Simulated scan of single mutants.
Amino acid sequence: MNLRDVYIDEVTSRIPESMRQDVALELESTIDDMTGNDPSETALFEALRQLGDPHILAARYANRPLHLIGPALFTQYVNVIKIVLPIAVTVITILSVIGYLNNSIDDTSWLPFLIQAFLQVGAAIFNVVVQTLFWITLTFFIIERAVPEGEVPFSSWKPEQLKKVKPRSTSISFGSILFDFVATVLMVVLYVNAEQMIRVVMNGKSYPLLNPSVLDRFLPFVIALAVFGIAIAIYKWMVRHWTKPLALWNALFNVVWIVVTALILLQPDLISSDAISLIAAQISIDVETISRWGVRSVLITVTIVCIIDLAEGLIKAFRR
Rank of each mutant, 00 (worst) to 15 (best):
V260F: 01
V84Q: 08
R168L: 08
Q116W: 06
V239A: 05
F140A: 02
L138E: 04
R168Y: 09
L209Y: 05
V23H: 10
L225W: 14
L246I: 09
Y77G: 03
L95W: 11
I83L: 14
N127F: 06
A226V: 04
L215M: 10
F174M: 09
Q196R: 15
D33S: 06
T75F: 07
A47Q: 02
N203D: 07
V260L: 03
V6L: 15
D107G: 10
N193H: 08
L3G: 01
A72M: 06
E10A: 15
K316D: 03
A58D: 05
L278I: 12
V305C: 08
L252M: 12
E195G: 00
K316V: 11
F113S: 01
I285T: 11
L314H: 09
W257Y: 09
R60N: 08
R296M: 13
H241K: 07
N2W: 10
I232K: 05
G204T: 13
V287A: 11
V298I: 15
I315Q: 00
V152W: 11
N102S: 02
D309C: 13
A224K: 00
M238D: 00
F126P: 03
L266P: 00
S272K: 12
S297I: 10
I258K: 14
V185I: 08
Q116A: 12
A146G: 10
L248K: 15
I285M: 08
L178S: 07
I307W: 13
T42V: 12
S291R: 10
P148K: 12
I31E: 04
V130M: 08
A311L: 15
K82E: 03
L265A: 11
L85A: 02
F179A: 05
V6H: 15
L186F: 12
Q196T: 13
R217C: 02
F318H: 04
V287H: 13
P245A: 04
I300A: 08
I142S: 01
L266M: 14
T42I: 11
G229F: 10
G229M: 11
R60H: 11
R49D: 11
V298K: 03
I258W: 12
